[in-house]
Design a protein around this nucleic acid. Structure first.
Length: 413
DNA sequence: TCTGGGGTCCTAGGACCC
DNA sequence: TCTGGGGTCCTAGGACCC
């Protein structure tokens, strides 16, 4: 801390790392607006999809389905900004959203089209800055530390170079896709994720450590990536609402309330500390398939319906493993009861597989240990402990595996 | 007629081994 | 008739994220 008055507080040295977070604006909805430009400016939500809406009850065939005509179990995946202004948001049940915005346009999800635009915007960014961490279909982290020009001052602004790169990224995404995005650039991923959200949509926010008190401390603590509903509620119980209040809370208090690991993380996060690297590739840990039924099903009364659904999930899981080039040993099932409780069961196979019939057999054995009195809302199958390959033992002559027993019997209950 | 589907990471107890 | 300590694997559940 210098005791002399600081005439130029912005002129601190640039941080070691410059990390960007780029978030597409209302991604699915914006892709749909490319195809349906006549909907621009209207409240539009994307979601549902399981039950395509038929003609409206009055028999008038409108150009697009309205939210009020929807009946089913879907949730909103994305809403345009005009729709958000009516109080609907992603994750909200469509029936509830229909009560708030009955005239909003409802479009079904088209993942293939979103994935196509996702590839386009990521490729455009990679032309400028190749060190990219995928965070799903519509957002990425980008390490700008070694991008030429990032550390150049422009017109005496030490952050001018980084701002220019931010603008180039946004321009490249717009040119490649016709879509806008919001970018945050800071010394780390945690701060960049917060920053990209500060000026949405179509924003560019560059934020350095000395900005933390006035830009971030007023925000609710729940805006930090990793503080969800449960942790927020617990913080509120402690009288902590904002990031600033969290930063002012003694470490010891957080350790006692949240445990060693999470307590320390909360403390670091509130102070903007995060040294996680931008990771350009991760081996997947698990692959799963699940489905929610159109109506709740009883394990015994609806056996005839349930069985084929379960078998199909296993086949889809096997196909996913095949397509992605993995086998796995950790088979698991997941059930959601009509009261929303979730139970899981899992088993470790003696030998990794991606065979649909084998998956079906062992997933069925998992199911046998689950209480099956209540009606079910959802069923799912998962493969974990993945290994890249096709399941044949490495360094074994072709055909040698045929003499191995495929599987032992499962242990007696 | 509330509340999708696909993931990651963490915790915690028990088995089992040395 | 008292009772180690560390390590790994397995299983179930839960918080959280996009």
């Amino acid at each position: 801390m210098s005791s002399a008055p600081d005439p130029a507080p912005r002129c601190e040295r640039l941080p070691e790392r410059l990390i960007a977070h780029l978030d597409m604006d209302a991604f699915y909805a914006s892709v749909e607006l490319l195809r349906h430009p006549e909907l621009k400016g209207l409240p539009v939500v994307i979601g549902g999809g399981r039950r395509p809406s038929g003609p409206s009850p009055d028999g008038v065939q409108r150009a697009h389905a309205r939210l009020r005509d929807y009946a089913g179990r879907g949730v909103i995946t994305t809403a345009t900004y005009p729709a958000r202004a009516l109080g609907v948001h992603s994750g909200m049940g469509l029936m509830k959203a229909a009560a708030l915005a009955p005239d909003a346009i409802l479009l079904p999800v088209d993942f293939d089209e979103y994935r196509r635009h996702s590839r386009l915007f990521k490729a455009a960014v990679a032309e400028i800055a190749p060190v990219i961490e995928d965070r799903g279909i519509d957002e990425i982290y980008i390490d700008l530390t070694d991008v030429p020009g990032a550390r150049d001052a422009v017109d005496d602004d030490p952050l001018g170079g980084v701002r220019l790169i931010g603008q180039r990224l946004k321009q490249a995404v717009l040119q490649a896709t016709g879509l806008s995005c919001s970018v945050g650039i800071t010394p780390n991923k945690l701060l960049s994720k917060l920053s990209s959200d500060l000026d949405k949509p179509d924003g560019l926010t560059v934020l350095m450590p000395h900005d933390i008190p006035h830009r971030l401390w007023p925000l609710p603590a729940s805006r930090i990536n990793g503080i969800g509903p449960k942790a927020s509620a617990r913080l509120v119980e402690l009288g902590i609402h904002t990031i600033g209040e969290l930063a002012a809370t003694p470490l010891a208090t957080l350790l006692e309330a949240f445990g060693r690991s999470y307590g320390q993380w909360l403390h670091d996060a509130a102070h903007g500390r995060d040294d996680r690297a931008v990771v350009t590739w991760r081996e997947p840990k698990s692959i799963s398939r699940e489905t929610t039924f159109e109506r709740d099903l009883h394990p015994r009364d609806d056996r005839a319906t349930l069985g084929p659904i379960f078998t199909r999930l296993c086949e889809q899981l096997a196909a996913d493993l095949q397509r992605k080039g993995y086998v796995g040993r950790g088979i698991g099932v997941k059930l959601r009861y009509d009261d929303f409780r979730i139970v899981t069961r899992s088993l470790t196979l003696p030998q990794a597989t991606r065979d649909a019939a084998v998956i079906r057999l062992w997933a069925g054995r998992c199911l046998k240990t689950v209480p099956l009195e209540r009606r079910l809302r959802l069923i799912g199958v998962k493969m974990a402990s993945l290994v890249a390959g096709d399941g044949s033992p490495p360094d074994t002559p072709a055909g040698a595996s045929e003499s191995l027993p495929l599987f032992d019997d499962p242990p007696a209950p």
